[in-house]
Amino acid sequence: MREVELKMKERAAELLQSGEVARVIGWKKGEFYFDPTPAVFESADELDGFVYNGFCGANLSKYLIQQSKKEGKTAIFLKPCDSFSFNQLVKEHRIKREDIYVIAIECQGKLDVEKLKEKGVSAVTEVEENGGEVVVSSLYGTVTLAKDEVLLSKCETCKSKVHQVKDEEIVFNEMQAGKKDRFEMVEKLEAMTEAERFAFWKEQLSKCIRCNACRNVCPACSCIKCVFDNPASGVAAKANDSEFEEQMFHIIRAFHVAGRCTDCGECSRVCPQNIPLHLLNRKFIKDIDTLYGEYQAGETADGKTPLTSYTESDAEPNDVMNGEAK
């Protein structure tokens, strides 16, 4: 990863110095090794804190909505999964392709600091990735862990390591998609009884604190005014721990991004209560795939989405419910 970071920094400096771009969106060093923050660099001098490591899990594409409206071109570093979101934003006219310079970067899967903590590793000072292993240095010593065990859950089921869009590429090593099937857990839930599923979601959603992190980080949630913030909508309630409002918020949010969600997994990554929110979106993805043909949001920046198109022979809702539709 080190060589990737160096090259990224070098290119960022070149682009800024030559004036080709007015700003570069990347990551800068946080307080620790494991908390880099998305950042906008406007000059080469600011690049001192530039960082790219195994903890740069954040999807930067949503920042483009604000940043690319500013004067001049914006360069952005996109991991393969982020490039899907980028296309989706272009498709929805939230950003303009020509305003942005896309640098596709290598990603070997990102790490989850909470999983490290569960393994008893705290006060991490550095992490070196070595094939299937990660060597974690901390104030309390060095440990070697299997990388698969400490990946962000969104990376475990990484759908593709192919950049969907790029102006240039910084990739040194071959990248591999996730080993786990991303619909495994959805299928498991589908196999449960209604009552079991209800209990599962009730327990998970009861943790929700309605902080809106999932919504605000989601590149598909790009409404200028969310219906849940609009007093005139009649649902802008904030009775944060009312059971119904939790259901309502998550159902409506999942539905609103259905067919547009690229499965970037940011919602689950940011949830302070670790609710597996991606399982909501994946149900829609799975249903769309089964009922209306395989569809991956963000694969292209044009074309219709499953919910804005139809065929005359689409399945009947009642058949879908009875499991008779294919």
Binding site: P38, A39, I209, C211, N216, V217, K238
Partner: peptide, 21 residues
């Protein structure tokens, strides 16, 4: 504040944040 998403996570996990509606 540049990277701030404007979510309320910090305020809702904060033990001293006391704003209410």
């Amino acid at each position: 504040s540049e990277a701030c998403l404007g979510c309320g996570t910090c305020t809702f996990v904060c033990p001293t944040c006391q704003c209410f509606d």
